[in-house]
Each structure stands twice: as structure tokens, then as C-alpha cells.
């Protein structure tokens, strides 16, 4: 049967009509990024209760997702989208990708991260990009702040991702911009460079190959990763072997919204409500390594110890990021040299 698929597809192309749509289709296509994941039992319960079928369509990272939504806004590939983050939110809003919808669940925490007052995007989760350290490899002398990382004590110990090619790399750059301001950040990077910071193109290489605290057992004990990463590096004694530096974090917020031109907008709204509901929000730490946007949702035990949510992460307005990111990346390139 399966081998017939291309032939059937060709037949479709050739103009033959194959099959037909069911008359009442309650499928909601959820366009999302590669990292989307949901607890099947929770999803099953929602589908059984509402009669809605959720069909996730994953495609690339947050950037690829945003651009796909922009390109298909005249005839969207789904009904609701999840995963546009605060570095891409302005672009999606400017292009009119999302329809207005204020979920009744939105004022239970997500409103804290609202991009603007229009209610087109609602925060689903937050995930902080923070410097991670391997205390054992550092002999217990662990840095704490941005400034410490430029200390000669940590020469040749730090590995970061290129902000031009990596999303955590960009978030860390934005964190330094927020911390040092437009005047000071380039100077800070000059000092990091003098202190032997290593730049690699992606998280995979930085974390799994260069970082000493991961399974790769690399040479460098300090890396840019996520606040949640230590929860995955728990030893046999149940304690995390690595730690996130909570004063170096930049907050990435992931949003969801109903798409303009959705075929099934009413059910799409219900799916958005579901993403904000307590049962779904409870699962986001384990499933997607992020923190719930909803208030009062308990974190898993492993997280409370190994990966608490940073209290005062740096942020920048989405509009500023959209306007300046390319210039910042180019200036970073000329400072650090890629």
C-alpha cells in the first residue's frame, strides 16, 4: 500500500480526484517547531472531551516556523501556531499572520509576557538561555556573573554558539546587550575574546562535544545552554552534575496564536486554551525543557533542585530585537571574528 503513495500523489497532480473530505472535519492543524512535544495521555483526554483532533505539523526551528507562517499567510498551512518566540514575534505580528483572540486562560500568568496589547500572541512557555558550568572540572571555583567570565581565572574555559547560526547563541548575545547596553556590550565581547572564548556554530557541538559536563566530556567547563539543561545531567546520586548561572540568563518566550484565515478557527481557539490549561502546562518541563507560562504550576522534583526558573533574567523588547538583530550580529562578527 505504502508504495502506492507516490503514484497516488502523481495521480492527484495529474488532476484526478482521489477520495473526498469528510463533511464535518474537526481537525485542528497545529503548526509548530521541531521541539514541540506533548504528553499523549493529556492530549488524548483533550481530544476525547472535545471531539477535536489535533494534528501537529513540525517544521524547523522558531525562525523557519515564523518564515513559513509569513510565506503562507494568504492560505495558511494550519489553524493555530505554537513556537514563535520573542526574537521573531514582531515579524509575525507585522505581517499580520495571527488573528486576535484573547483566551480566558491568558490572565492566569501568560499575560506577564504579552508582546503588545493586541492579544494576537499568547505566551505558552518560557525558557531561559543561561551559562552552564561543570563545577567538578572547575575545582569548585564557579563563576557567577557576566563579568566573571572575562576573568583570566577562566581563560580558555568558555565555549559559546555563533549568534548568526544558533538560537541560544543569539539569546546569549542579546543577554549581553541587555546587561551592558548599546555602548558596552561590544567592549565586553572584546574582553571575552581576549580571555580565549571559543565560538562554534551550533548547540550540538558546544554542548555535546566541547562542554566537559555532558556525555561528550569535552575540554571546556563553561558553556552557553539552557536553564533547564542541568536537569538532564543528573548523576546516580540524584544530584545534578552541572549548574546554570542564574545571573547570566536571557529569557526566550514562546507564543501561540490562532492563524488568520484558519479553516477551523473556533476549534483552533479551543486548542490554544488547551495549550494554556493546567494539564498541558504541567507537562512542558519534561516534554520540551521549558517552564510553564501559567502561574502556580508545580515544577517536577528534579527541576526544583537542578533547574529553578531564573528570577531576574535579562529581556529586550521584541520590536528592538527585530529592528537591531542583524546589526548586532554583524557588529558581533567584526568584534569576535566568527
Amino acid at each position: 500500500m505504502r508504495r502506492l503513495v507516490p503514484l497516488v500523489a502523481l495521480a492527484v497532480v495529474a488532476g484526478c480526484s482521489v477520495g473526498g473530505e469528510a463533511p464535518v472535519d474537526r481537525t485542528v492543524v497545529l503548526v509548530t517547531h521541531d521541539s514541540f512535544d506533548v504528553d499523549q495521555a493529556v492530549l488524548d483526554e483533550f481530544e476525547a472531551r472535545t471531539g477535536i483532533t489535533v494534528a501537529p505539523r513540525k517544521s524547523g526551528d522558531a525562525g523557519a516556523l515564523t518564515n513559513q507562517l509569513v510565506l503562507t499567510k494568504a492560505n495558511p498551512i494550519g489553524d493555530v501556531a505554537f513556537g514563535v518566540d520573542n526574537t521573531f514575534a514582531s515579524r509575525a505580528l507585522d505581517e499580520g499572520v495571527f488573528a486576535e483572540y484573547r483566551s480566558p486562560e491568558a490572565d492566569k500568568g501568560p499575560q506577564r509576557y504579552a508582546v503588545d496589547g493586541s492579544g494576537r500572541l499568547t505566551a505558552v512557555d518560557v525558557g531561559d538561555v543561561c551559562v552552564n558550568v561543570d563545577p567538578a572540572a572547575l575545582g569548585g571555583e564557579v563563576p557567577k556573573t557576566f563579568e566573571d567570565l572575562a576573568d583570566p581565572k577562566y581563560k580558555d574555559k568558555f565555549v559559546v554558539e555563533d549568534p548568526a547560526t544558533s538560537s541560544p547563541g543569539l539569546a546569549f548575545l542579546l543577554g549581553t546587550v541587555a546587561h551592558y547596553g548599546e555602548q558596552g556590550w561590544a567592549d565586553y565581547w572584546g574582553r571575552l575574546k581576549a580571555n580565549g572564548v571559543k565560538v562554534v556554530s551550533g548547540w550540538e557541538e558546544a554542548y555535546t562535544q566541547e562542554f566537559s559536563g555532558s556525555s561528550g566530556k569535552g575540554p571546556r567547563p563553561i558553556v552557553v545552554s539552557y536553564a533547564s539543561s542541568p536537569s538532564a545531567e543528573v548523576g546516580e546520586d540524584g544530584k545534578a552534575r552541572t549548574a546554570a548561572l542564574l545571573d547570566t540568563c536571557f529569557r526566550q518566550v514562546e507564543y501561540a496564536g490562532v492563524l488568520n484565515g484558519a479553516k477551523n478557527p473556533e476549534d483552533a481557539k479551543k486548542v490554544l486554551d488547551f495549550l494554556l490549561s493546567e494539564p498541558f502546562q504541567k507537562t512542558v518541563p519534561e516534554k520540551m525543557y521549558v517552564y510553564p507560562a501559567r502561574e502556580g504550576v508545580a515544577l517536577p522534583d528534579a527541576w526544583t533542585a537542578a533547574a529553578p526558573l531564573p528570577e531576574q533574567p535579562a529581556t529586550l523588547p521584541a520590536a528592538d530585537i527585530a529592528a537591531q538583530r542583524q546589526r548586532w550580529i554583524e557588529q558581533w562578527r567584526s568584534t569576535v571574528g566568527g
Binding site: D34, E204, T208, S214, S215, G216, A232, E233
Partner: peptide, 11 residues
């Protein structure tokens, strides 16, 4: 996808 996630088992 596995390489892009933390955790020894994934690796």
C-alpha cells in the same frame, strides 16, 4: 533531533 537534546541517553 537526539543530538540536539541534552542527556546522556539521548546521545
Amino acid at each position: 533531533r537526539l543530538v540536539a537534546r541534552p542527556g546522556e541517553l539521548n546521545n
